[in-house]
């Protein structure tokens, strides 16, 4: 009696935006609104039972973290619909936006706007970590900057939206928050050469905005020495 989900049929006619190792992103219209569909496809290299379990858990984890962030006042795409049968999440398409990565790349060095932007990033991450949400994949490509619908200049106060909570989880441990920042530092400095000062500005604003930043920054220093993975010796 139970039939298969209809989502794959819709996606076959939709525009493929991006394909990663974990999921495919499609752009389509849903209930009349511009929508991004994130489909976690089956991984043939995993045992089917394990694959189903992991995929299901990541799908639910992603929508949980999005809602938790939104409740705390951190912008993240609205979830319109979740299809647990085909593991698809229907998300608000943030129209007229640029990734922070593209925005920084297009800005001349020493731009004042950049300082304002990374300060905002620091404040948002501080708030997210204070809610015990660990993003898990912080990069400047996973932050969107809403632009004026007409032009390319961002609004006065940078309007940031965090996306891709696919690897996120809930944890209060300074260790996990430290690793989260470490991942961002690695990604930031490798995508944007010669921006050590800019990243320091980001960390300063994180420290000032977070209630529990002392322990996190201490852990970050530790993580820098040993890398992301903990030593399992002894």
């Amino acid at each position: 009696m139970a039939q298969k989900s209809c989502t794959p049929e819709l996606l076959s006619g939709a525009e493929l935006m991006k394909q990663g190792a974990e999921a495919r992103l499609y752009r389509t219209r849903f209930l009349g609104k511009p929508t991004v569909v994130k489909q976690r496809f089956p991984k043939r290299y995993r045992h089917p039972v394990l694959d189903e379990k992991l995929t299901h858990r990541r799908t639910t984890q992603e929508v949980r973290s999005i809602l938790r962030c939104r409740k705390a006042g951190i912008s993240a795409p609205v979830v319109y619909f979740v299809d647990y049968a085909s593991h698809c999440i229907f998300l608000e398409d943030i129209v007229s936006s640029s990734t922070v990565r593209d925005y920084i790349a297009s800005c001349p060095d020493q731009d004042q706007d950049l300082d304002l932007l990374v300060q905002k990033v620091g404040r948002i991450l501080a708030r997210m970590h204070d809610e015990d949400v660990i993003h898990g994949d912080l990069t400047t490509s996973n932050m969107l900057l809403r632009l004026h619908p007409d032009g390319t200049k961002p609004r006065h106060e940078p309007d940031l939206v965090l996306i891709d909570f696919g690897l996120s989880y809930i944890s209060a441990l300074p260790e996990d928050k430290g690793v989260d920042l470490y991942v961002l530092e690695k990604a930031f400095l490798s995508t944007h050469p010669n921006t050590e000062a800019l990243f320091q500005t980001l960390l300063h604003s994180y420290t000032a905005a977070s209630n529990k930043s002392n322990a996190v920054i201490k852990k970050l220093d530790e993580v820098r020495l040993r890398g992301r993975k903990r030593s399992m010796v002894g």
Binding site: V63, R64, I66, L67, R70, V78, V79, Y80, V82, Y84
Partner: peptide, 9 residues
């Protein structure tokens, strides 16, 4: 809408 869409999990 967010709450309606995610209430089952």
């Amino acid at each position: 809408v967010c709450r309606m869409a995610t209430k089952d999990v």
